[in-house]
């Protein structure tokens, strides 16, 4: 073993140790606890796969997964559409370019909890008052039905995250060689044709990045959910993360919640690994 190798491990060890203590050990613990009757204080016996079998029978958990999937699909589409549109706007040659970029990115800097409360006010009071003023019935009663709760969450998340996705698209858009576009213009391609045949294919890699980023983001949302609807009405807008917290801390079924968390981990891990796989493949191709 050479000297360099030794120093490698010496410098790495604090990180490995820290990672081990705060990530690996609790994870292994949690995994083991999901097979016991752990109540937060003590675990007395192993129950095997009982929790795992039960959770697939539980209506509430399954409906929260279904809700999260629906939510993720809709937000992923909307986020990418909005993100790309915003990016196209701010890469034009307009004067307020930098100002606009800052403004669009800003919602991303506000904490999710506070945003949730702000939007709660907008949906309930502002929407209600505007609806009364204009005589539009559909504007009243937001967040009091499962549908409006769902769309409320979608709007909040799209508004908050679109600026972040915009940044990714900007990076790709600015990398498109100017001469290609110029050549196309000389050949007489219209703006739409240029976008369809040149810009769009060249930002395609950004889609892969953004899609998986938004997908795993949408899956793990908790604070916006908590402050905007708190799962209500009747737990119909409860996402998986929130359902797990409830099971653990209000129903006090720690081990059962841990089993749900393991399932949740598997879902998110599959998404994340697919992303890594695709990105790697693309890198090799190019």
């Amino acid at each position: 073993m050479n000297n360099q190798n030794k120093w490698f491990w010496i410098f790495l060890s604090p990180v490995i140790l820290a990672l081990g203590i705060v990530v690996v050990v609790p994870f292994v613990y949690g995994f083991v606890f999901s097979f016991t009757d752990w109540n937060g204080l003590t675990a007395t016996s192993f129950v095997g796969f009982e929790h795992y079998l039960n959770l697939f029978q539980e209506e509430e958990f399954m409906s929260s997964i279904w809700f999260t999937v629906k939510f993720s699909i809709v937000t992923v589409i909307l986020l990418n559409v909005f993100g790309l549109c915003l990016a196209l706007i701010v890469t034009r040659k307009i004067k307020s370019n930098n100002l606009l970029r800052t403004v669009f990115f800003m919602p991303n800097l506000i904490g999710g909890l506070i945003l949730g409360f702000i939007w709660q006010f907008i949906f309930i009071s502002v929407f209600g008052d505007v609806g009364n003023l204009l005589g539009l019935e559909g504007m009243g009663g937001w967040l009091s039905t499962p549908e409006t709760g769902f769309w409320g969450l979608v709007i909040l998340t799209s508004w908050q995250m679109a600026g972040y996705i915009m940044i990714i698209y900007i990076a790709y858009l600015e990398n498109i060689p100017k001469d290609l576009i110029e050549a196309a213009r000389i050949d007489g391609a219209s703006a739409l044709q240029r976008f369809k045949s040149i810009t769009f294919p060249l930002v395609a890699p950004a889609f892969t990045v953004s899609m998986f980023l938004t997908l795993s983001m949408a899956f793990k949302i908790y604070d916006q959910n908590l402050s905007l609807t708190n799962g209500g009405p009747f737990n119909s807008t409860q996402m998986v993360a929130m359902e797990i917290v409830r099971t653990a801390f209000s129903d006090n079924e720690m081990a059962y919640a841990q089993a749900k968390a393991v399932i949740f981990f598997l879902i998110v891990a599959v998404i994340a690994l697919t992303q890594v796989y695709y990105n790697k493949k693309r890198e090799v191709d190019m």
Partner: peptide, 18 residues
């Protein structure tokens, strides 16, 4: 030899951390 180094570095760093 290698194992020894890892153990000793872990010990050092844990001492530092604590």
């Amino acid at each position: 030899m290698k194992g020894k180094t890892i153990v000793s570095t872990l010990l050092i760093s844990s001492a530092l951390l604590s």
